[in-house]
């Protein structure tokens, strides 16, 4: 470090190592046209993805553009509420804003009929029984009117079906 020589009156002055400067900024976020279409269905407990007109992949939630083709997705595709776990992790650390009891499972769930897994929680099953290929279904929050967020799904739980054929989800592992 550079050597500093201070005027005598500063000698012995305690160095300030931290100042606390609270800063608050408010933003009004916009979901976007495509994601809004999706969220307006989520409040009705429906999962509606969108298909790329070029590569035909189905994205849920749609985000406005097909990320590989750079074109708007428009054709809506209603999906069921079931899917397959392609991978997961067991979380043992309390995370900001997360109410699940430890340990809990955060998984990649490939919804049937879609082409990109979403990340969500897995419930109603011991954490050490979760595995790749497990079939799961959405468990929605109570009530008829959901908030327009994927958190309207509380978590996914096993359906009890046999595991999915690896050929159906292998490219996502």
């Amino acid at each position: 470090m550079t050597e500093l020589s201070l005027p005598a009156r500063f000698e012995g002055v305690e160095m300030i190592q931290r100042v606390r400067i609270p800063a608050r900024l408010a933003y009004e976020f916009t979901a976007g046209v495509a994601t809004s279409r999706f969220l307006r269905q989520v409040v009705r407990k429906r999962l509606v993805g969108e298909r790329c007109p070029v590569c035909t992949k189905v994205y849920v939630p749609p985000r406005g553009a097909c990320p590989t083709c750079g074109v708007a997705t428009a054709e809506q595709v209603e999906l069921g509420h079931t899917g397959t776990i392609t991978s997961y992790c067991i979380v043992n650390v309390a995370f900001y804003g997360q109410a699940m009891d430890l340990p809990y499972v955060s998984a990649l769930v490939l919804l049937d009929g879609s082409d990109l897994p979403i990340m969500h929680l897995i419930g109603e099953v011991p954490y050490d029984e979760v595995h790749m290929g497990m079939r799961v279904e959405a468990v929605w929050e109570d009530g008829d009117e959901m908030e327009p967020t994927l958190e309207a799904i509380r978590y996914f739980r096993p359906t009890g079906e046999p595991d999915a054929d690896p050929a159906t989800y292998g490219e996502h592992v």
């Binding site: 976020f29 979901a31 650390v93 995370f95 327009p148 994927l150």
Partner: peptide, 14 residues
Amino acid sequence: PYPFQPPMHAGAGG
């Protein structure tokens, strides 16, 4: 945790 995005349940490690 900003709105309208799929929730992140466990940070970067997750």
